[in-house]
Simulated scan of single mutants.
Amino acid sequence: MPPSEPLVELNGITKSYAKPVSLFKRQTLRAVDGVSLSVRQGETLGLVGESGCGKSTTGQIAARLLAPSGGKLLYRGEDVTGAGAGALRQALRRRIQYVFQDPYTSLNPRFPIGRLLGEPLKINRLCGRKERQLRVGEMLETIGLDVSYAKRYPHELSGGQRQRIGIARALILNPEFVVLDEPVSALDVSVQAQILNLLKKLQREFSLTYLFISHDLNVIHYMSDKVAVMYLGKIVETADVDSLYSRPLHPYTQALMSFVPTDDLRAKREKIILKGDLPNPLAIPAGCPFQTRCAHVHERCLSAAPSLKEASPGHSVSCHLYA
Rank of each mutant, 00 (worst) to 15 (best):
V48H: 05
P103V: 03
E43L: 15
I272E: 07
K201N: 10
R40A: 00
L217C: 11
D216L: 15
L65T: 00
S303H: 14
A18G: 04
E310M: 11
C288D: 09
L196H: 08
V48M: 11
I272T: 11
Y231G: 07
S38G: 02
R30M: 00
R164E: 05
K268A: 13
R135M: 10
S312N: 08
A87I: 07
D102K: 11
P281F: 01
A286V: 11
G159H: 04
R94V: 02
R247W: 04
L180Y: 06
L116H: 00
Q192P: 09
V317K: 02
Y153M: 06
L302K: 15
P6W: 00
R269M: 10
K15T: 03
S16N: 05
V39H: 01
L321F: 14
L274T: 09
R300S: 10
S316E: 09
P183Q: 07
L180G: 02
E9A: 04
R162M: 09
K268T: 09
E270V: 14
R129N: 13
G159R: 10
K15R: 14
C319E: 13
G114P: 12
E299R: 15
P175C: 15
R247T: 13
R95H: 05
L171T: 01
N218H: 12
K201M: 07
P261L: 09
Y252N: 10
F100Y: 11
Q41Y: 07
M139C: 02
Y98F: 15
L199R: 10
A186S: 15
D188H: 14
G34H: 02
A286L: 11
I284C: 04
I165A: 01
M257Q: 13
G52T: 08
E9T: 02
S316G: 03
H296S: 08
S243Y: 02
Q192M: 11
H155E: 04
D188G: 04
G86P: 04
R95E: 14
Y252P: 07
L217E: 01
A91Q: 14
R30K: 14
P183G: 00
L256Q: 11
D33Y: 02
L23H: 15
V260P: 05
V189A: 15
V227M: 12
A305K: 15
L134Y: 11
R269S: 11
G54N: 04
V99M: 02
F111P: 00
G82L: 02
G276C: 03
Q60N: 10
L256F: 14
